[in-house]
Design a protein around this nucleic acid. Structure first.
Ligand SMILES: NC(=O)c1ccc[n+]([C@@H]2O[C@H](COP(=O)([O-])OP(=O)(O)OC[C@H]3O[C@@H](n4cnc5c(N)ncnc54)[C@H](O)[C@@H]3O)[C@@H](O)[C@H]2O)c1
Ligand SMILES: NC(=O)c1ccc[n+]([C@@H]2O[C@H](COP(=O)([O-])OP(=O)(O)OC[C@H]3O[C@@H](n4cnc5c(N)ncnc54)[C@H](O)[C@@H]3O)[C@@H](O)[C@H]2O)c1
Lengths: 212, 212
DNA sequence: ACCTTCTTGTGAAGCTTTTCACAAGCGGTT
DNA sequence: AACCGCTTGTGAAAAGCTTCACAAGAAGGT
């Protein structure tokens, strides 16, 4: 069990995927599952499933497969879902309002504990249990509420500055919706969501397929 | 110029990235650009930039670099942005309303020509120039408006059915926001956006970094 | 016309990820 | 207690992707 090797990005995404599949299997009353089945319902092969899991230990029983319950717990621990993550949402615009209160976040332990915006019209507005705070309070909110993650839902021009301020205030990871590559200190993970890029990947593939 | 080899996903995403960088350079008045500079402002290396581009031809001049204008055009063609894409939005909920009229889509040639929903409260509602149509009209709208792409912004339970209906009606690609792996016929590209997965990738990396 | 400087395009090397293949192990059956 | 069917865990092979390194070519100066 090579617990210290680097884990590839694709492996992590697949783990996340396996977890979701396990939840579905559990909801259907499944008790054990083979790598074969996990692969079929995921998007991959049985060997890949086993290799992915083997990076973190050996959770299965030969001849039987994996205990759904146990594997689910293991994956939750591996993915860091065995604790609560405190998230601040920066930018209460269109994408921000979709993300806020997205139930799947809460279900996985991501709790949006604060929202900030610069727009005086929006500051003070109540969203569910939260009130939109002015952007100047970003640092103090992060410190006082012990925020771990920031969701950047601001215009591209503001993203870099907000990211820097957030990291300086102690945030440990960034989910960035602005279509810019933000620069952060070594060791602070950033995940980018770029929807234009996704559409471009589609049109590229469609074009390519039609080129015979 | 190996025009027929398979292009990796990561290459396509970088092309998309280069295009954005080129637009920024052009806005700053840049006329030519070297792979070195493109790499610095992207997220990669000069060799990678050249290798990526070399799959599609040789667009540069040795000693000089690339013409910003020309490379931009070439990339637009490669990514399929030299035409208009007609998009239907299925699901006029929170994420759907954020996506609709997202200006960056229009700027790249993706035009949301129709919106459908099942909710009687929403049907008939006007969003900008569009009116939300009942979901039963999905197929007829796709055919009549010559829709190429579908954005799935419906609950996970509805995603598979909507995807199948859309493909049967002639859609050529799917951007899926529902957190399920949808099954489609060979040759229909699907891009998935799974935000929970992105957050999980962050918490995984944060956990891992703190394990010394 | 030649030399210098710069940067591309590209095989080859190096590295990472995926797939293969099979010994090892578990549980049920005879 | 030995056998059998099944599935894991894992080295080794294969495939895929990135980096290296350099010849080839372009522009400008002398
Ligand atoms: N709408 C979409 O579908 C969509 C999709 C993908 C990416 N994005 C990106 O997400 C970001 C936000 O998009 P949107 O459509 O929600 O825009 P929006 O204009 O609706 O919202 C942006 C919000 O950020 C606030 N803001 C601006 N500067 C700020 C700052 N320094 N600190 C805090 N708040 C600030 C604004 O007041 C506004 O409320 C943009 O970068 C956009 O490119 C949007
Ligand atoms: N809100 C988010 O931040 C977010 C983020 C990522 C992914 N998602 C996913 O996107 C999807 C939509 O999320 P949402 O938050 O917008 O939910 P929502 O409930 O706000 O919107 C869903 C909409 O789809 C409509 N709908 C349901 N069945 C339909 C059908 N068969 N045909 C057409 N329309 C139908 C509903 O009437 C509703 O208007 C979900 O799968 C969700 O998991 C949401």
């Amino acid at each position: 069990m090579p617990l210290s090797r680097r884990i590839s990005d694709s492996t992590v995404r697949r783990l996340s995927h396996y977890l979701r599949v396990l939840e579905l299997i559990q909801a259907d009353g499944g008790v054990t599952v083979s790598s074969e089945e996990l692969a079929k319902r995921g998007h991959t092969t049985a060997a890949q499933v086993r290799k992915d899991l083997s990076h973190f230990g050996s959770f299965g029983k030969r001849g039987l497969g994996y205990s759904v319950d146990e594997l689910k717990d293991r994956l939750r621990t591996i993915l860091g879902l065995d604790r609560l993550w405190r998230v601040i949402l920066v930018g209460a615009g269109r994408i921000g309002s979709a993300l806020f209160d997205y139930p799947d976040f809460k279900k996985r332990g991501y709790d949006c504990v604060a929202i900030v915006d610069t727009d005086p019209e929006k500051i003070g507005e109540r969203w569910g249990e939260r009130v939109i705070r002015p952007a100047e309070e970003l640092e103090s909110l992060i410190r006082e509420l012990n925020v771990n993650l920031v969701i950047l839902a601001v215009p591209a021009s503001a993203a870099q500055v907000v990211a820097e301020r957030s990291v300086n205030a102690g945030v440990k990871g960034i989910l960035n919706f602005a279509p810019v590559q933000i620069q952060v200190p070594e060791g602070i993970p950033v995940e980018n969501v770029n929807l234009v890029m996704e559409l471009e990947a589609l049109s590229f593939q469609i074009n390519r397929a039609s080129e015979t």
